[in-house]
Amino acid sequence: MTKHSEDTPDLEPLFEAARANALEPSPDFMARLMNDAEAGAALNAAPPETAPPTAHPGVLTRLVRALLPVSGLTAATAAGVWIGVGLPDTDIASALLFGADSEVDLSAFLPASDLSQFSTTEVDG
């Protein structure tokens, strides 16, 4: 029961009457709620449609994940070794490895028709 303050009438008899004469839910409605409840619980009990991801990935998965970040570095290293060891000792290989720093080196990359442009390299004595 709720106490009423002195400046408001005591409406408690009316509140009491309201509590005692509440509109009750029908049996049909309660049955509907029960059916919903059972269906709701069953949905929560049902396993998910797809298997959840495993907490501990397999060895292969972990290996691939570990190698992914270094794969670029590995590829670059392998290419360097191939150029250094696999190619014959040519100007192209030297140029690729050490840079083209002379006209002779450059000429190796240019078409023959363009060589005339570099013919002025002779020094007047």
């Binding site: 309660m30 709620l33 919903d36 409840a37 059972e38 619980a41 929560n44 009990a45 049902a46």
Partner: peptide
């Protein structure tokens, strides 16, 4: 109910 207990759901209703 979250674990699928229908009886608990009915009790809450």
């Amino acid at each position: 109910v979250g674990n699928g207990d229908a009886q608990a759901a009915r009790a809450l209703v």
